[in-house]
Amino acid sequence: MSFTGAVKTYGAVRAVDGVDLRIASGETVALLGRNGAGKSTALSLLLGLNEPDEGTVRLFGTTPERAVLAGGVGAMLQEARAVPRVTVGELVAFVAGRYPAPMPVARALELAGVAELAGRRVDRLSGGQTQRVRFAVALAGNPALLVLDEPTAALDVEARHAFWHAMRAYAGLGHTVLFSTHHLEEADAYADRIVVVDRGRVVADGTGEELRRAAGGSLVSVDLAGTGAEGLALLPGVRSVEVRGGRALLRTDDSDATVVALARQDAIRGLRVAPASLDDAFLALTAPGPTRTESTRKTEAV
């Protein structure tokens, strides 16, 4: 799968702005970004629902439209309406019948955790049950690439764990999975790579640990105790300084050097050192202004 210089505009808005991205066969990749960052537009280009104004998007060596028609892609999108007066089993069987080499219906229902709902009407399910049925529908064609847009949005904690267990089982068979999410902990736990999109561009691409390092590997915080924060930004390793309620929060690439410098200045009061979280990395990478650094990985495209 590859995006090469892909651009999609809506009036004056460049929803996708020159995206270059490659995902290898068998990878599980999370797509992160704020609302309006361009995630859904990128997925629509990938699924052939829209065409780029500039650049190209390729799946399995061909166009997205042809790849989808050939049955190579399964998708679970946010916007979908329940089909009235059909059962879960009937719906999944109908969708499977549209593909050249579908997954057995019983297997799709089992993987999605809805086998016990096979005889229930789709329009009489709860929100969480409906979400899992949509997952079964996405699996029905036994696709090589599975695209999931906010797949756990309507699920409780237990259902979310069951969903990710099913997704990992499917990915473990050698399939490629691309999912967007607002749950950073899910991206960190279940993705091989995390791609951060902001203002239509890829601003970071790597593992959770690589993204943390890209945003500043550690956070050092101290009490200001009435003193100002002047000069803290010049300490060794420090990349940024933020003052919160009388404490200075220093994002640093070298926490040891930063702490030693603070000690020399007799500025250690209420010292705390902690690794940067993925939340911290995400906020730093999507902050206004130019991207400071970017972690990249080269892959063989699907």
Score class of each variant (00 low, 15 high):
Glu116Thr: 09
Glu150Cys: 04
Leu146Phe: 07
Glu158Phe: 05
Ala136Cys: 12
Pro143Gln: 10
Val133Ser: 06
Glu116Gln: 12
Ser126Lys: 08
Ser126Glu: 13
Glu158Trp: 03
Ala144Leu: 14
Ala159Asp: 10
Ala153Asp: 01
His161Gln: 14
Ala140Pro: 12
Arg134Ile: 00
Ala154Val: 06
Arg168Thr: 15
Asp156Leu: 05
Gly141Thr: 07
Arg160Leu: 08
Gln129Phe: 04
Ala118Phe: 10
Arg160Cys: 02
Ala166Phe: 02
Ala140Ile: 07
Phe163His: 01
Thr130Ala: 14
Asp123Val: 07
His161Asn: 04
Gln131Val: 01
Ala144Tyr: 07
Val147Trp: 02
Arg124Trp: 10
Arg160Asp: 00
Val133Gln: 01
Thr130Tyr: 15
Asp123Glu: 13
Arg124Met: 10
Gly141Ala: 09
Gln129Pro: 10
Arg120Phe: 11
Val147Asp: 01
Thr152Cys: 09
Arg168Asn: 13
Ala118Gln: 10
Asp156Ile: 00
Leu117Val: 07
Met167Asn: 11
Ala154Lys: 02
Gly119Asp: 15
Leu117Ala: 08
Ala115Phe: 03
Leu117Met: 11
Met167Gln: 12
Gly141Ile: 08
Val122Ile: 12
Trp164Asn: 07
Glu150His: 04
Arg124Val: 05
Thr152His: 06
Pro151Met: 03
Ala118Cys: 09
Ala166Pro: 14
Leu155Val: 03
Ala159Asn: 08
Phe135Pro: 02
Val147Thr: 06
His161Asp: 08
Thr130Asp: 11
Asp123Ile: 05
Gly119Met: 09
Ala136Gly: 09
Leu117Asn: 09
Ala136Asp: 03
Leu139Tyr: 08
Ala118Met: 08
His165Pro: 08
His161Pro: 03
Leu145Pro: 04
Pro143Arg: 06
Ala166Glu: 05
Leu125Thr: 11
Ala154Tyr: 04
Asp156Ser: 03
Val137Lys: 04
Val147Lys: 01
Asp123Met: 09
Asp156Trp: 04
Leu155Met: 04
Leu146Pro: 01
Asp149Lys: 01
Ser126Trp: 10
Arg168Ile: 13
Ala138Met: 12
Met167Thr: 14
Thr152Gln: 09
Gln131Ile: 00
Arg120Gln: 15
Glu150Ser: 02
His165Ala: 11
Thr152Lys: 03
Leu155Asn: 00
Met167Lys: 04
Ala166Gln: 13
Gly141Trp: 00
Thr152Val: 11
Arg160His: 06
Val133Ile: 06
Glu150Pro: 02
Trp164Gln: 06
Thr130Phe: 15
Val122Gln: 05
Arg124Thr: 14
Ala166Asp: 10
Ala138Pro: 15
Glu158Thr: 03
Leu145Phe: 08
Leu145Asn: 05
Leu148Asn: 00
Ala136Ile: 01
Ala140Asp: 07
His161Arg: 14
Gly119Leu: 12
Gln131His: 02
Leu125Trp: 06
His161Tyr: 08
Ala138Leu: 10
Gln129Trp: 05
Leu148Trp: 06
Arg121Leu: 14
Met167Arg: 09
Ala153Leu: 06
Gly128Glu: 09
